[in-house]
Simulated assay, not measured.
Amino acid sequence: MNLRLWLSGLRPKTLPASIAPVLVGAALASRIIDRLGTCIDSFPVPAECVANRAVAEPLQAHFWPVAVLCMFVAMLLQIAVNFANDYSDGVRGTDDGRDTAESDSTSDVNNRIAKPQRLVASGVPPKHVLAAAGIAAGLAALCGLAAVLISHAWWLLAVGVLSIAAGWFYTGGRHPYGYAGLGEVAVFLFFGLAAVLGTEYALSSSIDALGVAAAICCGLNAAMLLMVNNLRDIESDREHDKCTLAVRLGEQRATVLLMVCCILAWALGLFLCMYLWMPWGGILLISGIAVPIRMVSSVPKHQFRTALSDAGFQTLLFAVVAAVAAMIA
């Protein structure tokens, strides 16, 4: 077993997309719980304060166990999706020649290095890759079930089932939606809205407008990570009839869409961070503005290794700043 090959198959540069929304959702949930447990000292204690504290105390008691479980769920689901994607593309032949095609070019070093090795295309038996995907998905399901049992957020079971199904049908099944250009939409929904709002609800039993705004930011950041990946693979995807959004739009229009998403994510993220912690939240976020500028400027130059690293970094940057701002506020 080639450990280095399997680590590459994990696609570690995609993991920030799973870590960031849970971090943001947990921070916003902590803010909600703290506000529930805070009351002005007076005697007799207002009935509303008594009721709020009764709600806040059990939420505080299980906050960290559920937060850690949510983080494991997100990361394991991402790993399961990566392995399932490798398996499905491998058995379809979509990954055939991806790495070797790039090795014939000496003018695009960054593009070549950025491509992770595909497990099935590299000779790993497909059943082993499928088994790895199944194990990761099973562990994610167990962690999710434990989180639901602790938090009693039973409707999140349905979200978990949909997430696992979405991970498989991205490139699996007879009509994978990833081959129809809907991958970015699914990433926005599941690594943005579902992950942030699901975490926030599991921890605080509520969802607020700030959570929705943060979920949109995380979803856009995750979608941009996939956009860069698909722009990198646009030629090989086109050759294998994998009609990603980049293939459907063409390289130029897909690059413009990437820039638009980046502007929207940063505008909303800046507003959110400043709202939570004026003005320092905004200042902290702006301190990293060079990263998205370099990301969008690297794509037209086909410097995808740089662009992918920057896309992952800005995803975590927003999450960390938003989490710090929410906790301090």
Results as ranks from 00 to 15, higher is better:
residue 316 L to V: 09
residue 96 D to T: 11
residue 317 L to Y: 09
residue 1 M to T: 02
residue 281 G to L: 03
residue 129 V to G: 05
residue 261 C to Q: 13
residue 1 M to S: 02
residue 240 H to T: 06
residue 139 L to Y: 00
residue 309 S to T: 13
residue 25 G to M: 05
residue 313 F to D: 01
residue 56 A to V: 08
residue 241 D to R: 10
residue 270 L to Q: 12
residue 248 R to A: 14
residue 31 R to N: 11
residue 264 L to A: 15
residue 266 W to Q: 15
residue 267 A to R: 03
residue 186 A to M: 10
residue 275 Y to E: 07
residue 257 L to Y: 09
residue 255 T to A: 05
residue 96 D to C: 06
residue 102 E to A: 08
residue 173 G to Q: 07
residue 302 H to C: 06
residue 68 V to R: 07
residue 244 T to E: 12
residue 122 S to A: 15
residue 182 L to K: 05
residue 123 G to R: 02
residue 291 V to I: 15
residue 311 A to R: 03
residue 307 A to I: 03
residue 74 A to Q: 04
residue 90 G to I: 09
residue 63 F to W: 03
residue 50 V to E: 09
residue 152 H to G: 05
residue 146 A to F: 10
residue 319 A to R: 02
residue 46 P to M: 04
residue 310 D to G: 01
residue 316 L to R: 01
residue 159 V to E: 15
residue 25 G to H: 00
residue 94 T to K: 05
residue 245 L to I: 05
residue 114 A to D: 12
residue 93 G to W: 14
residue 191 F to K: 07
residue 251 E to C: 00
residue 287 S to F: 10
residue 27 A to L: 00
residue 254 A to N: 05
residue 242 K to A: 13
residue 201 Y to V: 00
residue 49 C to D: 01
residue 4 R to N: 14
residue 2 N to F: 07
residue 280 W to N: 08
residue 111 N to K: 15
residue 193 L to F: 07
residue 46 P to F: 09
residue 75 M to G: 02
residue 255 T to W: 00
residue 147 A to G: 00
residue 50 V to G: 11
residue 58 P to E: 08
residue 147 A to T: 01
residue 221 N to R: 00
residue 320 V to W: 11
residue 290 A to R: 13
residue 79 I to T: 04
residue 280 W to C: 08
residue 75 M to T: 11
residue 293 I to G: 12
residue 317 L to V: 07
residue 250 G to M: 02
residue 54 A to N: 10
residue 306 T to K: 09
residue 56 A to K: 00
residue 221 N to A: 04
residue 161 V to Q: 06
residue 146 A to V: 08
residue 254 A to Q: 06
residue 145 L to P: 03
residue 30 S to Q: 05
residue 50 V to T: 15
residue 227 M to P: 01
residue 321 V to N: 04
residue 2 N to C: 03
residue 120 V to I: 14
residue 213 A to M: 14
residue 58 P to L: 01
residue 42 S to E: 14
residue 199 T to S: 07
residue 276 L to W: 02
residue 294 R to L: 11
residue 310 D to W: 06
residue 153 A to M: 02
residue 265 A to V: 01
residue 162 L to H: 04
residue 247 V to Y: 04
residue 237 D to A: 13
residue 17 A to N: 12
residue 203 L to C: 01
residue 280 W to F: 15
residue 149 L to G: 00
residue 276 L to T: 03
residue 31 R to M: 13
residue 149 L to V: 04
residue 262 C to F: 10
residue 312 G to I: 11
residue 204 S to E: 09
residue 239 E to T: 14
residue 34 D to P: 00
residue 230 N to E: 13
residue 291 V to T: 13
residue 193 L to W: 09
residue 88 S to Q: 10
residue 275 Y to S: 08
residue 57 E to G: 02
residue 326 A to H: 04
residue 277 W to R: 12
residue 317 L to H: 14
residue 314 Q to E: 13
residue 302 H to T: 15
